[in-house]
Design a protein around this nucleic acid. Sequence first.
RNA 1: CGGGACGUAGCGCAGCUUGGUAGCGCGCAGCGUUCGGGACGCUGAGGUCGUGGGUUCAAGUCCCACCGUCCCGACCA
Length: 575
Amino acid sequence: MRWTQAFIPTLRDAPADAEAKSHKLLVRGGFIRQLAAGSYSILPLGVRVRAKVAGIIREEMNRIGGQEFLLPALHPAEIWKTSGRWTLMGDNLFRLQDRKQVDHALGMTHEEVFASLATELFSYRELPQIWYQIQTKFRDEPRPKSGLLRVREFTMKDSYTLDIDRPGLDSGFDKHRAAYFAIFRRCGLDPVDVEASSGAMGGSESVEFMVRSEAGEDWIITCGNCGYRANVERASSAVAPIEDGEGTNLERFPTPGLRTIMTLAEAHPEIAPPDRQIKTLVYVLAGEPILVLLRGDHELQEQKLMDVTGAVEIRPAQPEEIREWLGADPGSLGAVSVKGPTVIADLALEGRKNLVTGANEDDWHYSGVDLNRDVGVGVWAELRAVGAGEPCSVCGSPLERWKGIEVGHIFKLGTKYSEAFGATVQDESGQSHPIIMGSYGIGVERAMAAVVESSYDDGGIIWPVSVAPYEVVITALRTDDGPTMDTAHGLYQELIEAGIEVLLDDRDERPGVKFADSELIGIPYRVTVGPRGVTDGVMELTARRGMVKSDVPLADLVTTVRGVVESERFGTEVT
RNA sequence: CGGGACGUAGCGCAGCUUGGUAGCGCGCAGCGUUCGGGACGCUGAGGUCGUGGGUUCAAGUCCCACCGUCCCGACCA
């Protein structure tokens, strides 16, 4: 492509909005433009990168036996009602009506459609299947942000495994895990697979692929010693036991004005240090109150509460609701002899006694609380958020905590959707079984943004060859110099014939502008053609990464460029 | 949805306090000089001041409503 004919609208000034570096660079470099909140136009340069990423995904999916589909984005409401997600997905699902006032949804994922297609399978002999597509998804995100990292319309590679039994599912899951590592590494990313929460997808087990980045929105817990790694939504850690001493009787005592764990601890250091208090939180789940108990110095991880309760939407109770249900304001709450609401307690409280908690009367607390004796705990579960530095529950080493971008997520779904749609196959003995499904997703544009997040410098983006919009840029320094332009055009033709993707910067601009622009848009290799080099018969070849320069004789240039580009085109080789 | 901020030329912004001629930088067009790291001179084009109401002789500026965008708290590829 000749730059003079290309639509590459680079920007000198950074856009004022959004924090993410990738967003600024993609906008400045002319890859994307925002149309509305969470809605982006992808420009020609961006389309080329996106196509490369999609191509890598396609190759690796085909390699594990995937078959490509293309399903509609517009779905009849019926299939979402069949799976139960018409209500379950709440406001996240885009809904619309046609001219006959019939309900439709814009697909946010495609378990329903693939499950309905899976009803055309009848025999175990047809399994396993791996079905996938690369297609647009719509999600009415509460808060789109960070450029391409969080949007309302995006491209997802979603795939689905169909198996007769659990070992089959495990195998399909493992194939995807390996394929995902291959895909992301070929894109130049260094992903970590972590244990994750399944959320509204349902299913038994899920693993997220995280790319370390300050722009990420997830917190990841890892152990540098034993390799344990999990999303904080799921992570656990070892908690050192607290010595409670001899059990005593339950006693009420006045605590005027002491409404927080800290002030209570300071006023009664001998009986109420934070780790010997019970923190009582009130949440609302489907309109019903539940009490959540944690050790005083621990924080609630809401996703864990959602996972335990199976709730899709939970929220902290309003102060008025709390007063109505418990008869006291936050700060004096407790679960001692509470009858109505379900009580869910964190495992760190199991077996504890001699604790302090609110008495459900303003300015009064209980001491000597024995969880087993005084509180009707309905459910014990791990609910607390793990913090950095806590001991690993596997090996005891201190845990690390870092931010990551979720570029992929793989789920073992089970039979939720196949049962809803009646997708069954017969086994050897003629008995029918619901197909066991797995589902696997990669956010294509998000992966693009993650590549930028993890590969840029002061000059702009540094694309790996594997996903670069062009592999080489020829920077012609003097458009008014005949020999320079002849050489540049000649090289352009030769490189194209050698199968290289070339951008020829034939703009009548000063050298500084051309250098700066080519660096901003991140073309991995640059050939500088100017009068000086043409006279000497030597061209300057610059690698974008590190801006490493070398002089190459004109006669060797095509071979040299072809050598470096072809060796990097596949991306990092995966063993 | 709750809280905060902002909407003025393609981009980045000033003007609003104290109402009275629509401004700056970059970019863009023409001409000339310049040209291996973001040049310079001259000339010029380009704006329903987010939308709608209100106050006023007069509104970018004051008031109200709405819309949009961004940021901070609950969701996901």
